[in-house]
Design a binder for these strands. Structure first.
Length: 297
DNA sequence: TAAGTAAGACGTCAAAACTG
DNA sequence: CAGTTTTGACGTCTTACTTA
């Protein structure tokens, strides 16, 4: 896999739009912010962008991340589904050389906005201000929970992790090398399989394989930085640091996904609550109308 | 039953956000 | 402001399901 060309992404800024959408949606209809954005364009700008739709984008085609097919179904918060025509291209990372703007039109809305194509004029600083990433899921959800009673907070630490040192480096003693699904080799730790299963609730899907020549055997026994002399030792230390970083990031990614799931669940439950609330209010309104309006016959 | 597809999970990289 | 944490995106794998 080519790693060097990954700088251009189609970031969805999901959280930003989700919060905005949920907050403004009271009657089950399409929020103004979403409607406006859609009428302009669904603009997917690599690097910094926003897709003005809520959470669920189901793709009628390959789901393996290599770009979307010609027709994409976008499910809106109201449950309405719109067909997005045009290919949402996700070019091969190694092919991308410059920032690209990719736009797709929502089929249900004919009107377009000429200004959507003028993104080249917008300087990066301005875009950065407008489209800057929001704080973490944990932060958003905790803010949400302080505003709305009943919304659970995301715990700082999982209960089963209490009492154990949070630092992965401290608890993991590398004892070998295992190969990941992507064919890369990592240091195997004694805790790795059980920890992985505990974090995801699933059985680990990675097989421990016999080490090959990909990594030097002495990696895990690298000396402390102070005693490094030879270039080989320096290289070993660098490798060790890298493995450590990868291991920490691996765990961080798992945790991040867990938080994201929790966050999405929370939003879904909030939508359900608001829908019920909305229904009740409509019924109440109808009742009051009946009471207030005198019957003619 | 083999081939194709969808969904979910994972590891990794890179960049934004956060922190001391 | 450097180091750390968080998260979007990509590529890959596995599993369940569908279809020819």
């Amino acid at each position: 896999m080519s790693k060097c060309g990954r700088k251009k992404y189609m970031k969805t800024n999901l959280r930003q739009m989700t919060m905005e959408t949920i907050d403004s949606q009271q009657d089950g209809s399409l929020p103004d912010s979403v409607a406006e954005s859609e009428s302009a364009h669904m603009q997917m700008q690599t690097g910094q962008n926003s897709i003005p739709t809520l959470a669920q984008v189901s793709v009628a085609g390959s789901s393996t991340g290599r770009g979307s097919p010609a027709v994409t179904l976008v499910q809106l918060p109201s449950g309405q589904t719109v067909h997005v025509q045009g290919v949402i291209q996700t070019p091969q990372p190694s092919v991308i050389q410059s920032p690209q703007i990719q736009t797709v039109q929502v089929a249900t809305i004919a009107e377009t906005d000429e200004s959507a194509d003028s993104e080249g004029v917008i300087d990066s600083h301005k875009r950065r201000e407008i489209l800057s990433r929001r704080p973490s899921y944990r932060k958003i959800l905790n803010e949400l929970s302080s505003d709305v009673p009943g919304v659970p907070k995301i715990e700082e630490e999982k209960s089963e992790e209490e009492g154990s040192p949070p630092n992965i480096a401290a608890m993991a003693v590398p004892t070998g090398i295992y190969q990941t699904s992507t064919g890369q080799y990592n240091e195997e730790t004694e805790l790795a399989p059980s920890h992985m299963a505990a974090a995801t609730g699933d059985m680990p899907t990675y097989q421990i394989r016999a080490p090959t020549t990909a990594l030097p055997q002495g990696v895990v026994m690298a000396a402390s930085p102070g005693s490094l002399h030879s270039p080989q030792q320096l290289a070993e230390e660098a490798t060790r640091k890298r493995e450590l970083r990868l291991m920490k990031n691996r765990e961080a990614a798992k945790e991040c996904r867990r938080r994201k799931k929790e966050y999405v669940k929370c939003l879904e439950s909030r939508v359900a609550v608001l829908e019920v609330q909305n229904k009740k209010l409509i019924e109440e309104l109808e009742t009051l109308k009946d009471i207030c309006s005198p019957k003619t016959d």
